[in-house]
Simulated scan of single mutants.
Amino acid sequence: MTKLGAVFRPQLAPERLPAVAGAANDAGLAELWLWEDCFFQAGMASAAAALAGTDRLRVGVGVLPVPMRNVAMTTMEIATLERLFPGRFIPGVGHGNQEWMAQAGVKVASPMTLLRENLAAMRALLRGERVTTDGRYVQLTDVALDWPPASAPPVFVGATGPRSLRLSGEAADGTVLDASSRPDIVRRARALIDEGRATGGREDRHELTVYLHAATGPDASARIQAELARWNEPPVPEYQDGVSAKTVAAAVRAVADAGADTVILQHTADEPDPEGFVRFVAEEVRPLVS
């Protein structure tokens, strides 16, 4: 069965997160995803706050930009959250927006190499291994976690291009696609991920998580249209006659049929009622998807 979740977008003030996470938890929503977009909110701090205020909600960060983060410190943070909240934290990493990386003074010549080196070191450390590596960007000498997690959490990659999708299949445990991903893009992404998995000899499970634009309320359709226009994205066919729980559920099913394991509904940047949005996802959309 397709899992359903929602996003807490960083355009909302950080102090609103506890109430939204609590509403999602109480409504029985499976997952709440956060973004570490520059220069809004820190992903790990936000994830810790959401996890601490809930008791069953899974919290993902999609994604942490690896150019801004030391791999040893990021892995320590992941391990800490996994030990504190076993099975409820989903870490995602990615290249980061290259313009933002340049703003922060951390843009690298080869984002692919940096991501590959980060994934290799991170996943080894989370497995409790002692790591020494002298890569182009990642250098570690005899590093091991003193408090590794009892079970290594899956590490996701946010990817769009063919090379990144293949790398995710080869070297990560899951992939996150952004909300511009219509079913044809999801099918293509799944095929590229599978190519990477074959290259890496991977036979374990690889979960595909896909964001999907959604909204609720009397102005839902207008806000979705404005959101799509802002990013110059194609329309969501299921929304041509309006945005409602029924049409959102139909759009979820289309993405799931194309290969998504989890669909995360993404509210608009100007969402007036984020608590109401997560309840809408859990209480109105989820029954129609199930």
Rank of each mutant, 00 (worst) to 15 (best):
L57Q: 08
E77H: 10
E129P: 11
R202Y: 00
E271R: 11
T132Q: 09
N97G: 05
H213F: 14
Q41W: 11
A52I: 12
R182K: 05
A24D: 08
G22R: 09
L17N: 07
V59W: 00
G53F: 08
A179C: 12
P218M: 01
S290D: 03
P162T: 00
A172R: 10
H95T: 04
P218G: 01
P272N: 04
L167F: 13
A21Q: 14
F39G: 11
S110Y: 07
E284C: 02
A13L: 06
E77R: 11
A52C: 11
A220S: 10
R223T: 04
S164A: 05
L51W: 15
R279W: 08
W33Q: 04
R187Q: 07
V143L: 07
T160W: 07
E15F: 08
T2F: 07
I78T: 11
I193T: 05
A269R: 10
A19W: 01
G87C: 04
Q41E: 09
R188N: 03
R286N: 07
R286T: 13
P272S: 11
K107N: 05
R83M: 10
V131S: 04
A13C: 05
S290W: 13
A258N: 01
A121R: 15
R187C: 00
G92T: 06
E283G: 11
R187K: 01
K107Q: 11
S151Q: 13
L126T: 02
L115G: 04
I90G: 13
A215P: 11
W147Q: 15
P65G: 01
L115E: 00
L12C: 11
E117T: 14
E129C: 14
R197T: 02
P149Y: 09
P274V: 05
D26E: 12
W100C: 00
R58C: 13
L4I: 10
E15K: 11
V155C: 04
G169M: 10
A250E: 01
L288Q: 01
G62F: 05
A121L: 02
A269C: 12
T113V: 09
T141F: 15
L57I: 13
M112P: 07
A120Y: 02
A120G: 08
R230M: 03
Q98E: 06
A52W: 08
G92R: 05
G200T: 06
D146T: 03
A104P: 03
D219G: 07
L4E: 06
A50L: 14
G96V: 11
V186F: 01
A30Y: 14
R56A: 14
S180R: 15
V20F: 06
A258W: 07
G28I: 12
P149W: 06
V252A: 05
A121Y: 06
A102I: 09
R163T: 04
T75D: 05
V63D: 03
E233V: 15
T133E: 14
R253L: 10
L12W: 15
E117L: 13
A50H: 11
E284K: 05
H95V: 01
P218Q: 01
R9L: 09
L115C: 08
L32T: 09
K246P: 09
G94V: 07
L114K: 09
R202M: 02
Q41R: 15
K107G: 02
A251Y: 06
A104N: 13
A152I: 07
